[in-house]
Design a protein around this nucleic acid. Structure first.
Lengths: 158, 158
DNA sequence: CTACCTTTGTTAGTGGCACTAACGTTTTGC
DNA sequence: GCAAAACGTTAGTGCCACTAACAAAGGTAG
């Protein structure tokens, strides 16, 4: 008796939620492996992209556009500020808010991360044809758009 | 100035690894919502399925067939044993191992969980046509099969 | 038979992420 | 002017992926 490979039961292998979880783990691993070289995490990238694309924003704005919770945003911005990739200063026009600004160093950092992220996506999708890659992206978009919280709650949402 | 909806940057919305993460979160939420009614977690279901499909097995076997780490399996089996869904007894033929056996109560529990899981999959895939559902499953299968650890390491793997 | 390597179950611990709750402060809507 | 909402922040929970190490047992080679 050799070591039986002990394959996954067929019933388990075909469950969509399990397949999604598995694929997501693989994807995160590929992304994180690369980002580790820059000491970054995926949220860093998301915040930098949001800032580059829409300009200066409040923390709550960034929270909504990246999907990170307001409460978790604090730490992410602390880390980005430690690297001098962003500036965080009170908004004179609305003293509840901070204005988050991308610095030149932040823009360069974003370019590095962007390359790494793009590489990771390429490796992730390597087993699929370009046609299939587009199809997968499309299906996932439809899926997530459909299951989106429609009525944002008053305060502590997202 | 009303509350700007603050949409996600286009650059972020199209990144496959982000789409996968988002879809996986949605899927897990749908599954967990339902399993909560039975006080169960998704790992419970996976272990019960493996036992039902392949019969009694050691913890290491179950670990390999479900994808749960050996170290995490301990707690899962404790929980299942608390509900009397499984029996865990030393293997007389190999005194390192425990033989895990599905009880009649466990089989009934599995049937209940199976219904819940199936319902969750249905709701998850609702926005897709049957054709698209198959396509998504296929693409995810190709993806995860391709990115699978090929050479299982000696001891502390998986 | 003995020395070595592997497997097994287990404990402990880490780190990331999703998510909730509560707070003091400030702004907005009626 | 007052109540409701938004903002930044702190604290904490729970799940999960993953690592490290250990003792006990089994397999293998010489």
């Amino acid at each position: 008796m050799s070591t039986t490979p002990e394959p996954a039961p067929a019933r388990l292998r075909t469950i969509p939620s399990r397949l999604l979880a598995g694929a997501s783990i693989v994807a995160d691993r590929l992304v994180n492996e690369r980002l580790a070289a820059e000491g970054a995490r995926k949220w860093h990238f998301a915040v930098l992209v949001a800032l580059a694309e829409s300009g200066a924003a409040s923390q709550a704005d960034l929270s909504r556009s990246t999907g990170i919770y307001r409460s978790d945003m604090v730490a992410v911005l602390n880390e980005l500020a430690n690297g001098a990739y962003i500036r965080r200063e009170p908004d004179p026009a609305d003293r509840r808010r901070n204005v988050i600004t991308l610095t030149p160093a932040g823009r360069r950092h974003l370019e590095r991360l962007d390359t790494l992220i793009t590489d990771a996506q390429r490796e992730l999708l390597a087993p699929l044809t370009p046609r299939q890659q587009d199809e997968l992206t499309h299906l996932l978009t439809v899926l997530t758009e459909h299951h989106r919280p429609q009525h944002p709650r008053p305060d502590d949402a997202r």
